[in-house]
Design a protein around this nucleic acid. Structure first.
Length: 824
RNA sequence: GGGUCCUUAGCUCAGCGGUUUAGAGCGCUCGCCUCACACGCGAGAGGUCACUGGUUCAAAUCCAGUAGGACCCACCA
């Protein structure tokens, strides 16, 4: 505990008239919680743990609605568990975001007239660290505004020293287990960032393109063969033509050679099943160095692999006259040249699927390159098993299918990146006399430099290669010599639930499960709660380029953090995307206002001190049976709701839970209960009445606290005298009490509600002013004696709610003249 | 080419581990500044729960299919 004398924030002196102003309470309460260590977890207590690992936002990130939604969920679950007596850890942190961060800093340098390459690797990394120090904390500061109750003392960064150690250790372990290998393969090359990227970082986009039909003359000098291609420029790298083995048209050509137009190089004509005889011209040009399928066909037939491109996607020396041209310029020139030589048969419009880098939006170039890979199949098997056998459950369950599908078809993971910002690959090379890498000697995989003079691999690792370790690396793994780390790992691993959007199911969630099982033998968490994604009003993704984003901080400014959180929670239904528009937050603001004002109904009668806080603890002296009808009814409703909320929350149906609390508070407590307990004008409210109003209100405030932490904390302090270091955030979660439920009274009360609505309806229909006193006769069916007595004793309810000054209750009575009737 | 999701009041959506008159917010109509709240109160209008079959005593809710829309995955140039 940080402070010995926790200072409860000052409240406005005149509690009674103070209007609701969210900003007045948000900062003060957040500071109070932090100063008093309510977010902290030390791992040494014997409380049961509850662990949520926050998806670490990118250091370059700024708070968006997706964060606001997911944080609202995570914070609600964390606060709920904390109130239920768990040691609730919500682990915060941030991700170094390799490409994104490097791009941001590079852009900044460019504006200053500087250049990454000119300044050199070390200087550049220094600048990135400088940038991270200056701006990296912004997003986590923003999260505090939402009320996030993370254990900030444990905050981690995927590039901090401990994390680097974890990343390198896991690399070494994987290598030693034969699960990491290096090799020349066709990879997704991003010519803009000039790095390889993984399959997951590639978006396949359909675009309008063309199918060019090109004539390849035969080497024999007699005749030709026509092929169809969507990428004519790659013909410079053709090393064969393939036809289907059973295609009658080409039988006689198999084994012969054709001459590559423009280049004049002879290439063999081969037969392969892959070729579809009925597509295009039925003959396929094979470019093993620039097409995945061609690469495979090339391997089957032992074809030469001829790379025709530089790393910036210009044509290299193998391109003859086209050397130096950009790939798309080369395409134009080649098509023109083919046409000039009458080798272009025809051009058709054709929709092609183009691979785009999700980072740079540049068109990916499949390129042969030496990279590091992780063999994924052995890692995927246990991860599949963990979900199949129920050690991990997805909410909603359908996401498990998506997970299975991906893992069942998993391909090896390209983990090396030709960037500077990131974890250096822990591989070391011997050098020759000139200091150059000596490729004739084996490399060494090691966290530490194995011997002086050896140089480390230049590449860095994919960002996700560090974040997949998040659930245990944040707890200090692999430094298990440290007592604290051992204790934390034992207590906080595995965690309980991971909350995230489906956009990173493959990138992160699935990989974390694989890493967790591989490293610790245990799943990283038992539940995966997949939220929907926030879209704009028209259902489009919010993006900077569209300018359709809604800024959560602006919304918080406008409506208050509690309002934003409430609205997001109630809109968040079972993984469904949310089409958001700012007016949705009015719902939350109105509700917060209602909560605030409702307090005054009884609060104005409480004895308070100068700080506006109660000086007396109002407790009822009556047992449940001695309570009034309306009191028994509202308690019954309260306990019903607590029970239902419990059930909803256990299934991550936060929207249903909060809807029920909302209805209880507004429709039952405010519209009926408070209206009935209000004393006549000028009169006092009795202490007994105040006591029950407080009792119910307090529990509703607690039920709401996980969702609307600020306003509930403030009001909680106004309900009873509180001891130092107490707080709503640390109060005990309400439990349903069966002994204080009276379903018969509740049912009778519901009947009375219908009667009163019926009477109001009649008054309305006949234009009788609501304030005008009337008489009413209630005609009950036979055998409704209980109800009859209840109504008779509570005739005052009818007067209060429908201005019925004369109430007659009976059975089988005649309808008076000049009256209106309603049947319920 | 596979797969998932959506289609419920004018709008945005809940509800979908089958059972009372299908709900909410906003909007709309009527009446209210009733001393907690007009960010409010009371009353009300408004729905063939996409369509077609099936299972069932009973379906918006389960099953099969159809039509629209969205998304994910996939190596036909």
């Amino acid at each position: 505990m940080a402070s010995d004398t926790p200072q409860a924030p000052q409240t406005p002196p005149s509690t009674r008239s103070a209007a609701y102003d969210p900003h007045q309470i948000e900062d003060t309460w957040y500071r109070y919680w932090e100063d008093n260590g309510f977010f902290r977890t030390d791992g040494a207590s014997d409380q049961r743990p509850h662990v949520i690992m926050m998806p670490p936002p990118n250091v370059t990130g700024r708070l968006h609605m997706g964060h606001a939604l997911q944080d609202t969920v995570q914070d609600a679950l964390t606060r709920l568990r904390r109130m239920q007596g768990y040691e609730a850890l919500w682990m915060p942190g941030k991700d170094h975001a390799g490409i994104a961060t490097q791009n941001v800093v590079e852009r900044m340098l460019k504006e200053q007239g500087q250049d990454r390459k000119a300044m050199g690797r070390e200087a550049f990394i220094g600048r990135v660290w400088g940038w991270v120090e200056e701006y990296g904390d912004i997003i986590l500061q923003q999260k505090r505004r939402l009320g996030d109750s993370c254990d900030w003392d444990r905050e981690r960064f995927t590039m901090d020293d401990g994390f680097t150690h974890a990343v390198q250790s896991i690399f070494v372990k994987l290598y030693e287990d034969g699960l990491i290998y290096r090799g020349h393969y066709l990879v997704n090359w991003d010519p803009d960032n000039q790095t390889a990227i993984s399959d997951e970082e590639v978006d396949n986009v359909e675009r309008a393109g063309h199918l060019w039909y090109v004539r390849y003359p035969l080497a024999s000098g007699e005749g030709h063969l026509t092929i169809a291609t969507t990428r004519p420029e790659t013909m410079l790298g053709d090393t064969a033509i393939a036809v289907h083995p059973e295609d009658e048209r080409y039988q006689h050509l198999i084994g012969q050679h054709a001459v590559l137009p423009l280049v004049g190089r002879p290439i063999p004509i081969i037969a392969d099943d892959y070729v579809k005889a009925d597509f295009g011209a039925g003959a396929l040009k094979i470019t093993p160095a620039h097409d995945k399928n061609d690469f495979e066909i090339g391997q089957r037939h032992n074809l030469e692999v001829l790379n025709i491109m530089n790393l910036d996607a210009t044509i290299n020396e193998h391109g003859g006259p086209y050397e130096g041209l950009d790939r798309f310029e080369a395409r134009k020139r080649i098509v023109a040249d083919l046409e000039a030589q009458d080798l272009l048969v025809k051009v058709e419009d054709y929709a092609t699927t183009i691979p785009i880098s999700s980072r740079s939006k540049e068109i990916i170039e499949p390129l042969i390159s030496r990279q590091w890979f992780v063999k994924m199949k052995p890692l995927a098997e246990p991860a599949l098993e963990a979900v199949r056998d129920g050690r991990i459950t997805f909410y909603p369950a359908r996401w498990a299918n998506e997970y299975f599908r991906w893992l069942e078809n998993i391909r090896d993971w390209t983990i090396s990146r030709q960037l500077w910002w990131g974890h250096r690959i822990p591989v070391w090379y011997h050098t020759d006399a000139d200091g150059e890498i000596d490729e004739t000697r084996d490399f060494v995989v090691s966290v530490e430099q194995p011997e002086p003079g050896m140089v480390q691999d230049q590449d860095v690792l994919d960002t996700w290669f560090s974040s997949w370790l998040w659930p245990f690396a944040t707890l200090g793994w692999p430094d298990t010599d440290d007592e604290q780390v051992r204790q934390d790992l034992a207590k906080f691993y595995p965690g309980d639930v991971l909350v995230s959007g489906y956009d990173i199911l493959f990138f992160w969630i699935a990989r974390m499960i694989m890493a967790g099982l591989y490293v610790t033998g245990e799943v990283p968490y038992r539940h995966v709660f997949i939220t929907g994604m926030i879209k704009d009003k028209q259902g489009r993704w919010m993006s900077k380029s569209l300018g359709n984003g809604i800024d959560p901080l602006e919304m918080t400014e406008q409506y208050g953090a509690d309002a934003v959180r409430f609205s997001l929670t109630i809109l968040c239904a079972q993984g469904q995307d949310i089409k958001l528009d700012p007016t949705k937050f009015e719902m939350g603001r109105n509700f917060a206002n209602k909560i605030w004002n409702a307090f005054n109904v009884f609060g104005q009668f409480m004895e308070t001190g100068e700080d506006g806080r109660p000086t007396r603890d109002y407790r009822r002296s009556r047992s449940f049976d001695e309570l009034t009808w309306v009191e028994r009814w509202i308690l019954t409703r309260l306990h019903d709701t607590i029970q239902a909320v419990e059930d909803d929350l256990s299934r991550y149906r936060l929207n249903e839970a909060i809807t029920k609390i909302y209805q209880l508070f507004w429709s039952d407590y405010c519209d009926w209960y408070l209206e009935l307990i209000k004393p006549p004008r000028g009169e006092q409210m009795t202490d007994e009445t105040i006591a029950l109003a407080v009792e119910v209100y307090e529990q509703m405030v607690q039920l709401l606290h996980p969702f609307m932490p600020f306003i509930t904390e403030e009001l909680w302090w106004r309900l009873r005298p509180r001891a130092p270091r107490e707080a709503c955030i640390a109060s005990a979660w309400p439990t349903a009490n069966d002994a204080e439920q009276d379903e018969a009274a509740a049912a009778a009360f519901a009947t009375m509600q219908e009667m009163i609505s019926g009477i109001r309806n009649v008054k309305n229909t006949y234009g009788v002013s609501p304030g005008k006193p009337i008489s009413a006769l209630v005609n009950l069916g036979q055998g409704a004696n209980g109800l009859l007595t209840a109504l008779e004793t509570h005739a005052a309810y009818f007067e209060k709610l429908a201005r019925v000054t004369e109430l007659t209750v009976g059975t089988g009575q005649d309808r008076p003249k000049a009256s209106a009737a309603v049947v319920i």
